[in-house]
Amino acid sequence: MSDENAPEQKVKFYQKGTYTVGNRLVNVRQRSVQASMDRSNSLTCGHRACQGCGEALGARYAIDAAMRATNNQLIAINATGCLEVFTTPYPETSWQIPWMHSLFGNAAAVAAGVAAAMRVKGLKQVRTIAQGGDGGTMDIGFGCLSGMFERNDDVLYICYDNEAYMNTGVQRSSATPVAARTATTPAMGANPGNSFNSGKNLPLIAMAHNIPYVATASVAALHDLEAKVTRAMSLHGARYLHIHVPCPLGWGSAPHDTIQVARLAIKSGLFPLIEAEHGMVTATVPIRQPVPVTDYLKLQKRFAHLLRGGEENARKLAAIQTIADNNIKRFNLVRKEAPRV
């Protein structure tokens, strides 16, 4: 029923398992890379990430998909951060691909160099990925990244956004959401947590570089994530993928809730799933079963102070709801259409 050569199934299928990782009832080609027995497991067992680490999960999802898309011809350059530290405590490595680490802030520049080297050596089929956390990408590595975009170097840069500097103990970054408690924005005083009107939106900044491809993805939307990696690898030039990866330690969420938390970020509108080419939005993923932002916030201790009642908190919650509502408006996220995730 589900052999490799069967025609693409157009039927609106899936009462059962529609959104699951695999589905024995659809063609092998239409199942996710993660469903296949021969996925490359680019990031294998024995790494030292926390229980339920969203970054470890997101990295395997993304790199396995890139391996499939490039026929396993892939080199990854890693910025300093959890992903680097928990995978490569000397002399062990969890990477089953060529992988290199240089510094915290220079992954984009190193990757641009690797891509140039491959070109010079005539290894056109070997593709380059750079990856790092939100701190390494959006703050300290931002100059190198913007340069890589602006030069249109042939690199896919993947940012694993866990919304703070996790590896050094949860310090605030420019990706930390408003009101969130971190080690440097404690839940104390008149304005507990991260201040309002701070931070930046890197996917939109990347789009402003008019590069060939920019997208956001989430560990709670595997099929969408894989489709975006695949699309990115089908293009050349500078590409940017921003993946939302919950961090149980830094967010104060239960390890078993990692995917649920990421899912609620999508369902509440706080993390829109979008895709853009050459600066223009080409697709967004409509929300299935929308929820209020509190559904998302209440699973995370970093927002606990917000949920203790009082007028001030109500005002702040309303402000966060407005952020979500604006995302929904901006990208038309609640609409009548069969959603992909």
Partner: peptide
């Protein structure tokens, strides 16, 4: 189990074998 592969996919530690 109906073999949807969710556990196989969702494990951050790649600790489930299909």
């Amino acid at each position: 189990c109906f073999e949807c592969d969710n556990c196989y996919g969702a494990c951050p530690d790649n600790a489930i074998a299909k």
